[in-house]
Design a protein around this nucleic acid. Structure first.
Lengths: 152, 152
DNA sequence: TTAAAAGTATACTATACCAATAGACTTTAT
DNA sequence: ATAAAGTCTATTGGTATAGTATACTTTTAA
């Protein structure tokens, strides 16, 4: 049940982009370098990832001097599920329970397949979290912990 | 969030081994061929998988004519989580929230990392299902559906 | 006692995917 | 015009997946 590095870096970057915007409604623009430095991610690799996210409509960008990336929508309207699916594909552990890319799995009878039932539960549990957690929820939670620990 | 073919086949095989034993307390023995035929799994590949499961202590076997594999413990006492971990490793989507094989993930500060918090939730949701579902639970559920649908 | 059934054990292979790197190209502000 | 920034395509090295092949050992029934 693994999150790939692409997924991890992409999620981290999106959270970073959501963070400063926290108290303003104007989208915060950040440069690739800025993010890669702060999150310790290979710049070139991050380039690809942000591009993918942009092509998927989750990010906008501005070219040229003083450019950068910014969220395509407000942090409340972007869920981790959306980001995850763009970078790592379906949430389902097995294709026969996938909503976005169903495929039969070769068991004798899908209707009575116990593995399928359980994996369906797992898929729903994961999707429940990822689809109901927005970037804003994440930054909110981070701040709560920071406050509690008296950090930064 | 993927279950590998090894994991899928292994779980399927274990469920198959749990099934006939349902109403008896004596462990049901099945041969590799029998299982591979019924579940449409490459015999040679399944061989490896069952061997792994055996070395992990979840299966026992009997060699020679009339031999086969059977569950090492009763179906109630084997959970899907145990099987999964043997074949596919940790349940956690990211190492920094893994119980069985923790590793830091390189974010600036683990305590306040939002991604880590959410992935921790995901890990717990998955583990909750997998560790609280036994092979007996699965076969029970299968039978309930069979009955309801009037199948076989 | 020996042949066949069955599991055990290693090694190998082809393919795909992942993570990262490289380099050339395009757009934009100054 | 030039430098800063994103865009695009290709390539690389490594690892994981999903098997296949082959030789070996143990057990049992004829």
């Amino acid at each position: 049940m693994r999150l790939s590095k692409r997924g991890e870096y992409g999620l981290r970057a999106m959270i970073a982009l959501a963070e400063p915007a926290e108290n303003s409604d104007t989208p915060q623009m950040m440069q690739i370098k800025e993010i890669s430095l702060r999150e310790q991610i290979s710049t070139k690799f991050l380039e690809q990832i942000l591009l993918t996210l942009k092509n998927a409509g989750l990010l906008h960008s501005k070219m040229g001097v003083g450019g950068g990336y910014y969220l395509a929508r407000s942090a409340k309207e972007i869920t981790l599920g959306q980001i995850f699916r763009v970078l790592d594909g379906p949430v389902a552990p097995i294709k026969c329970v996938s909503q976005m890319s169903y495929e039969p799995c070769g068991c004798p009878d899908e209707d009575t397949c116990g593995l399928r039932m359980v994996m369906g539960d797992v898929r729903n549990a994961i999707a429940d979290i990822l689809d109901n957690t927005s970037l804003a929820d994440v930054t909110k939670r981070q701040n709560a912990v920071r406050k509690k620990l008296g950090k930064k």
